[in-house]
Amino acid sequence: MGSFAFLTDRVWLRALARDAFGKDFWGFLAAAIGFGVLCWWWKGAEVTLEALRSDVEMVLKVLPRIVLALSIAALIWVMLPRDRISGLVGQEAGLAGLIIATMAGALTPGGPSSAYALLAVLGTSGADRGAMIAYITAWATLGLQRVLVWDVPFMGAEFAMLRVLVSLPLPILAGLIARRLPFEMILRDFVPMTAKGRGE
């Protein structure tokens, strides 16, 4: 199984461990313990243990959803190449262009590093500003990965659906506004880089 060679790659494994238990992790752990101690000191043992019990309950409930959501995100990441998405945007003008940009933004997997790199490519390849704004607004407000990985586990599926529903018109609205703004857009010269995903 050549495609699984990374599993025995020492460098990759070490990077994986660093990602999981790097400085950030200890910061978050310290915060969790710190607030726990504060809670104990301020509100007493009973409240603290009750909070801890409901935290553990929530973690057990949320964990399977997060594992499912991240598996979905990984499949989309591999099956939907980023350059295919950028090829779609900017081909159509008018409202159709904004709708396509919105769908592309919602489907772009990965965190801000991939979305903004793609946006910069769109800019240099001549997509209009309406489509660019619609694209990045859709990625931010409707991004499928954010909804699946964050909204659903943390806030529940009903809330996630509500948020998606009310956010549907936003990117198109923002694109329409952007086309009417009298500001000039001077884009940076962009050197394409390899879009490496960050965990978001």
């Binding site: 999981a20 992790f25 915060a31 969790a32 929530m58």
Partner: peptide, 17 residues
């Protein structure tokens, strides 16, 4: 998984407190 889950779990517990 490794990027998100350890931090996420700590953040959830901290949020509860």
């Amino acid at each position: 998984f490794s990027k998100l889950i350890p931090r996420m779990l700590c953040a959830l517990v901290a949020a509860g407190f």
